[in-house]
């Protein structure tokens, strides 16, 4: 019985490793999930990040620069601007995903 339990635990551990490993790897990210999160920026920053008026375009920015910018807003001692509050609404991982998504889009569009 003891042996059976140990064996089962080992098997479960191996199965868990197989299942969990891809989730921990950026390679396994579902790109449509990134697109879904990032699309929530479009209400203010335009479809695919091509903004009208004075609001910044998002398409084509370096992912690291954009993520750092959002993380800086999130880290403000006291949220002042609308974007400070918006940044507080997202996890660091979501911010990275948003930045990653927009970095893959062209700098400007016809919208």
């Amino acid at each position: 019985m003891s042996s059976f339990s140990t064996g089962l635990s080992s098997k479960l551990a191996i199965i868990s490793a197989i299942v969990i490993l891809p989730l921990n790897s950026a390679m396994a990210e579902d790109p449509t999930v990134n697109r879904m999160i990032a699309s929530q920026c479009a209400q203010c920053h335009g479809t695919n990040g091509y903004a009208r008026g004075s609001f910044p375009d998002l398409g084509g920015d370096e992912a690291k620069d954009q993520a750092d910018h959002l993380l800086d807003m999130k880290g403000e001692d006291r949220a002042e601007d609308m974007m400070d509050h918006q940044a507080l609404g997202y996890t660091d991982d979501q911010i990275r995903r948003i930045a990653q998504y927009y970095s893959t889009l062209p700098e400007s569009g016809d919208d």
Partner: peptide, 29 residues
């Protein structure tokens, strides 16, 4: 999400101008 709820500290001309950029982007999207 905690911390994400915020409102302007005061009303301003800058906010008034931003209002048009916000709505124009929302309309376009």
């Amino acid at each position: 999400v905690p911390g994400s709820l915020g409102e302007a500290h005061n009303w301003s001309t800058r906010n008034f101008n931003d209002m048009f950029d916000w709505s124009n982007n929302l309309f376009a999207d």
